[in-house]
Simulated scan of single mutants.
Amino acid sequence: MVKRKELKDNDVEMSGTDPRDIDMVNVDFEWFDPQPIDFHGLKNLLRQLFDNDAQIFDMSALADLILSQPLLGSTVKVDGPESDPYAFLTVLNLQEHKDKPAIKDLTTYLHRKATSTPSLAPLAQLLSQTPVPPIGLILTERLINMPVEIVPPMYTMLQEEIAWAIKDKEPYNFSHYLLVSKTYEEVESKLDNEESRPQKKKKKAGGQAAERFFFHPEDEVLEQHAVCSGSIEYTHKQDDGHSDSKRAFQELGIRTKGSLILFEAGRLEGAVQGMKEYVQPSV
């Protein structure tokens, strides 16, 4: 029987919001171990995480692999254990599962992207080794309107569960952790160009690199503790119209990219502590 995680919604402090400025909606967040009923919800969140390149991978196999280790990782739900997860976090051992087709495809993809991204050279070197070192691949995603405050508890639980697994001689003694995430950059609207509005000027003039923005704000803190990090171009790119479809009441469109963050295993604890301080700063 799957146990409920020992954490309640009132253990998470929501900060930075004045309740007088918004309409309040009471939501009870509950943390659970991954369970078979989460299969379709996990697939949907994995597709969201890998964005344009989700079609490259066998999402069913990845979801099954996550569910095969039910005592490692968490899901977050609001309507009890039978409901779909609104967020999840887990870790997969790239060395232990190296012969599984889904992990083979994913490792090849990550190596190719790291090799073509100068800032990710240390990751490319690691993934070039035979066999691949015991790298813990962290996969995590949440619905877009989920508060960032739910994230630190998931990482804290994961650290505890990894420590318990190592004591039980299970294969979770990692040399590194690799986090897969997403970033985006703002792009000049195709619609504005077609309308030829002379008063609109390009904000990224002179060939300057576009500014990176984080879908997951905690990633900005995690990168400060990383061996290396960087955004990667998706293999399957969308046309300009797709960027405009994501304007969401703003002047510019957005172009999504993948993001990879590599940690030495010993630095994860400090990274998580930094994330906690960023998300829930002391008053």
Results as ranks from 00 to 15, higher is better:
Pro36Val: 14
Ser128Cys: 05
Leu49His: 05
Asp192Val: 13
Tyr155Gln: 01
Tyr177Asp: 01
Ile254Ala: 11
Arg20Pro: 00
Pro70Ser: 02
Phe215Gly: 01
Pro101Met: 00
Ser15Trp: 08
Tyr234Phe: 15
Gly16Thr: 09
Ala124Met: 09
His216Ser: 06
Asp219Lys: 11
Ser128Pro: 02
Phe249Ile: 02
Pro19Gly: 02
Tyr109Gln: 04
Ala226Glu: 10
Pro122Asn: 03
Lys182Leu: 11
Leu62Asn: 01
Pro122Met: 06
Lys246Glu: 10
Asn26His: 12
Val78Arg: 12
Ile162Ser: 01
Glu186Ala: 06
Pro36Ser: 11
Glu251Val: 10
Leu126Lys: 12
Gln129Val: 10
Tyr184Gln: 03
Pro19Trp: 07
Ser68Asn: 04
Asp28Tyr: 08
Gln55Thr: 14
Lys190Trp: 03
Val151Ile: 12
Gly274Leu: 08
Gly258Gln: 10
Gly266Gln: 13
Arg255Asn: 14
Leu139Trp: 12
Asn26Pro: 04
Leu7Pro: 01
Arg212His: 08
Val283Arg: 03
Ser181Arg: 03
Gly136Gln: 09
Ser189Lys: 03
Val180Ser: 04
Ser196Pro: 00
Gly253Ala: 12
Gln224Cys: 10
Trp164Thr: 09
His111Gln: 12
Gln238Pro: 00
Asp239Gln: 05
Ser74Val: 08
Pro122Lys: 12
Gln95Thr: 06
Ser15Leu: 13
Asp58Cys: 11
Asp53Ala: 09
Trp164His: 07
Arg247Ile: 11
Ala124Asn: 08
Pro133Cys: 07
Gln280Glu: 10
Phe88Val: 09
Leu178Cys: 04
Lys202Cys: 01
Leu72Glu: 09
Cys228Asn: 02
Pro153Met: 04
Tyr155Lys: 03
Tyr278Thr: 02
Gln250Gly: 15
Ser282Trp: 08
Ser259Cys: 13
Leu72Ala: 10
Arg142Trp: 09
Arg142Asn: 11
Leu42Gln: 04
His236Gln: 11
Asp28Gln: 14
Tyr278Phe: 15
Lys5Tyr: 05
Thr256Phe: 13
His242Gly: 00
Glu141Phe: 05
Pro34Lys: 03
Asn26Glu: 15
Glu218Gly: 04
Tyr234Cys: 04
Pro81Gly: 01
Ala210Arg: 13
Ala124Tyr: 08
